[in-house]
């Protein structure tokens, strides 16, 4: 464990807590893409298949349970909760996210570290996570006034993978074992997808104006 990875995990945790806070306290999911939340639930479900079979550390297991629990409960809230679901903007959240899954699965079957079920599922979850934010970014461009919590959620979600890239650089120089190039590239693509959001987020913070993405 290193400071970059811990910062990444904490940032990721905060992004999830900000979202749960928004949905649970103000009972609203306005501006949040259910498609992105569903993709994230699938990302965690396919990445943490071995949560009960191989034990890495208490921290690792607890964090996996938190990410699994929170992502599925957010999907549940947005689909089933009688108040929250009313604020879900389904006519705007129209990204065909299932079309994202197939290419990721095919790519994972072709390009992976080892052709085993767990390894392919893990690679699939990496590719899927890289593009999971797309429905949310599209929705943000359609949603005129993005509320602060939603902006913070997306910002933290983007920042966590940027910290992971620093973690991979750190591990590359300090440990003989370093992560596979597949991880590097998916993490880089994922972070780059946030680039324009980060730009507008920073602008809105610097000029102290409401965050707005150009359509």
């Amino acid at each position: 464990m290193n400071i970059f990875r811990l910062a990444g995990d904490m940032t990721h945790l905060f992004s999830v807590l900000v979202l749960l806070l928004k949905i649970h306290t103000i009972k609203s999911c306005a501006g949040i893409s259910l498609k992105t939340q569903e993709l994230y639930a699938i990302v965690f479900a396919t990445r943490y298949l071995d949560i009960f079979t191989n034990y890495i550390s208490l921290y690792n297991t607890i964090m996996k349970l938190i990410f699994l629990g929170s992502s599925f409960s957010i999907v549940w809230y947005m689909r089933r909760h009688k108040i929250v679901r009313r604020s879900y903007d389904k006519d705007q959240d129209t990204f065909r996210h299932y079309f994202l899954m197939l290419p990721c699965l095919i790519l994972a079957l072709i390009i992976n570290e080892k052709f085993t079920f767990r390894e392919v599922m893990w690679t699939f979850s990496l590719y899927l996570e890289a593009v999971a934010i797309l429905p949310q970014l599209v929705l943000l461009q359609r949603t005129r006034n993005i509320d602060n919590l939603t902006g913070q959620y997306v910002f933290l979600l983007g920042a966590y993978r940027a910290f992971y890239i620093l973690n991979w650089i750190y591990r590359y120089f300090t440990e003989e074992h370093f992560v596979h190039w597949i991880t590097w590239i998916s993490g880089l693509v994922q972070t780059l997808l946030y680039a324009d959001f980060f730009y507008y987020y920073f602008q809105s913070w610097k000029n102290n104006v409401k965050l707005e993405l150009p359509a």
Partner: peptide
């Protein structure tokens, strides 16, 4: 096995 030490991150 090697899956574990390769994927010790979240």
């Amino acid at each position: 096995d090697d899956f574990d030490d390769d994927h010790d991150e979240l």
